[in-house]
Design a protein around this nucleic acid. Structure first.
Lengths: 395, 395
DNA sequence: TGACATTAGTTCGAGACTCGTACTTAATAG
DNA sequence: CTATTAAGTACGAGTCTCGAACTAATGTCA
């Protein structure tokens, strides 16, 4: 029980097939010779693997690219028509679904207000399946992003402070729902932390694309982080990694909802921000932040308040950078609508607080995926095994 | 250039051989059937692999264990007589060498005072080679631990604030020295950060053995951390992960050597600790801490000072735990001689500051490896490829 | 004491895979 | 129209894993 790849020669084939798929995802359409060079496999081997993938509907040939001497190569590309993955998000005030195909295209993206209910989530899953999976396609996996602490089994929930959830049943319920719908092989169902999912999405599709070491921060009432190191999520011993909202960091006078003093989110969480700008909360964090941004255009007092919040954000990022040294930090949640109003002071504080003159400041960017980040990352996670050799499309 | 294992069937054999070696390391002497069960390979395959390893001198049969029905199994064990790795540490005030054999035994461990000089290090390497490697043995790799920022190539140094080093040459010089000595295949030479090496050692041999998620803290004049997640070191985008000394955390009045205020090491570094207990620095941090510990037995003022330092330590660990969620935190450097004088207040502070009621406090332990931790971890890192399939002993 | 049950390890042939070489195919250059 | 160049395929050799059958070594029980 040691090697994930599988021991025998067919395990070897799975790994090599996955390598070809990864190469196609990273470099786009490629000829067999290009694939052979990129993967290190022999031309002949790539030929066989591509033929298998073609038969499975995972790749297709494109029109050839002429113009050079010699026989023109026939590029092969990932094909999204047959294989998809489903990502869901169950949050406090909304529910989302994203269907992602093998080629990385978003086939469906839907959010519904009023969340927190498992039945709503399953209904959304059924609808998404009907629209975007249906007959011809194969659903390889589904992942539910939840604002909760998920155990190492990737199925059960250890702690969900804001959600009333029967921690054990969610994955099983979804698996049963999907099994009713589909005829083919049962998809792999998993549960995952929402900040981790969003971080994964940003590092694959969004603002941190291409960065192997990224940090995602989401700001709502609380502050959460998702950590990507070497392309993989850092989860910690019990899944608590990234619970940065209660870092003892802010000024000691600020009282946090947890009862302690000086927590980071007591200085930069949504409520602290609203107190700084002396405005009231609207129905969702995003809409609230949009209203604040609008007011900031005319009100210098609001801008000054956001400046103070931004400095607090920068201080926390300095802290996290000292520990993790990310290349990119992506800010999501309520930070996104505020943009440079918060980012600029954060950058300045960060520059003052870098660990050394040699360390480069991580790039601070705004989330580009918005509310569907978590669901998208969940779908991407479900697609993961296809590219890592955990799932064989050709069998 | 994608799959590290190697593509062909001999790469598969390398992976399976490594799996057998890992199983032997983890579970100790095992019969072929036990190995087959543990690795998932077929009995026949394990038989072939063990025969190859035996021929290479990597494993040997032990006396059989009778007493049960049926033919008694013949346990096979890792054999240290033929394969060793060298770990070196080049520090400011000392130089160390450790030779570790394949069975995990320390064959040689030596420290010499007065460090910082490359020539001294090479001389120590030569001596260690002569004593512990010599004729019959094969040196598979050597790693130098340095208090410096090491680039992603694992050979060159990007920044060494306390050391005068020609950053590029160290690895090459050592490789040349070893090539002169040995006849066999040239060992792989690498350079690595000292805190990372120590963390690796503690998680394999020391106080954090068995923990997949561990954090190592070393306290001297500065504070450094080594982070182990899922058994692997976290290095960050540019190798700066774990540079926690300048986390903006302490009270803002404390001025740090870096010129800023509020750095963690300005509150809990060696000099801050000495100021708290009103004592003077001796020749090395360890000896200084021993003197302080001795004085604490009789002087309540010293105990009170250490109490304050311990609270600062606990606060920083609370911070790091929020981000990384380690199972075990190991304290090394000057903290080790002080023991519970620092650990007890740190534990109390940590209990007060945990992110939630659900999160379990990471275990705080003292380093058991002392000054040779870094060199030992360096040796262990050099042995790594043997167990990960990166190096084939049988060819 | 000796046949039997039980477990460990080996032998052997089948099947799967990768690889290098030689060959075929399809385009451009002159 | 021919030479050249490069992509893709066919094929045989080599390596590997696997399951089944077989041999080996020990305890059990009559």
């Amino acid at each position: 029980m040691d090697r994930p790849g599988g021991a025998g020669t067919e395990g070897l084939r799975r790994d090599n097939t996955a390598a070809v798929l990864r190469s196609l995802r990273r470099r786009g359409p490629s000829t067999r010779v290009e694939l052979a060079k990129d993967t290190g496999l022999a031309k002949a081997t790539v030929g066989v693997i591509v033929a298998d993938l073609q038969a499975a509907g995972a790749v297709a040939e494109e029109g050839s690219r002429p113009g050079v001497r010699g026989r023109p190569g026939r590029p092969v590309a990932l094909r999204g028509d047959d294989v998809v993955a489903l990502g869901l998000e169950l949050n406090v005030d909304y529910t989302s679904a994203v269907v992602l195909d093998l080629a990385g295209q978003v086939v469906l993206s839907e959010s519904r207000p009023g969340g927190g209910d498992t039945a709503d989530l399953l209904a959304l899953a059924r609808d998404a399946y009907a629209v975007a999976v249906g007959e011809g396609r194969r659903l390889v996996g589904a992942t539910v992003a939840v604002p909760a602490l998920v155990r190492g089994d990737n199925r059960t929930i250890a702690w969900a402070p804001n959600l009333h959830l029967d921690g054990a049943g969610l994955a099983d319920d979804l698996a049963a729902t999907l099994a009713d719908l589909g005829a083919g092989p049962a998809p792999v169902v998993r549960v995952s932390n929402d900040a981790n999912c969003a971080a994964y999405a940003e590092s694959h599709h969004g603002a941190a694309r291409g960065a192997a070491h990224a940090l995602y921060l989401t700001g709502t009432v609380g502050i959460g982080a998702g950590i990507v190191q070497d392309g993989e999520l850092v989860r910690g011993g019990a899944g608590f990694a990234g619970e940065v909202g209660h870092m003892p960091l802010g000024d000691a006078s600020a009282v946090c909802g947890c009862g302690r003093h000086g927590c980071w989110e007591a200085s930069v969480g949504l409520h602290a921000m609203l107190a700084e700008v002396q405005m009231l909360e609207l129905d969702t964090p995003l809409r609230t932040a949009e209203a604040v941004a609008e007011r900031a255009a005319t009100d210098p007092g609001v801008r000054a308040g956001l400046e103070r919040v931004g400095r607090g954000v920068g201080l926390g990022i300095a802290m996290l950078s000292s520990v993790l040294d990310p290349e990119v930090v992506v800010l999501g949640g309520y930070f996104a609508p505020l943009g440079d109003l918060v980012l600029d002071p954060a950058r300045r504080t960060l520059d003052e607080r870098l660990a050394s003159a040699v360390q480069v400041r991580p790039e601070l960017r705004l989330s580009t995926l918005g509310i569907r980040a978590a669901a998208l990352g969940a779908a991407e996670q479900s697609l993961g095994p296809v590219f890592s050799g955990g799932l064989d499309l050709t069998s």
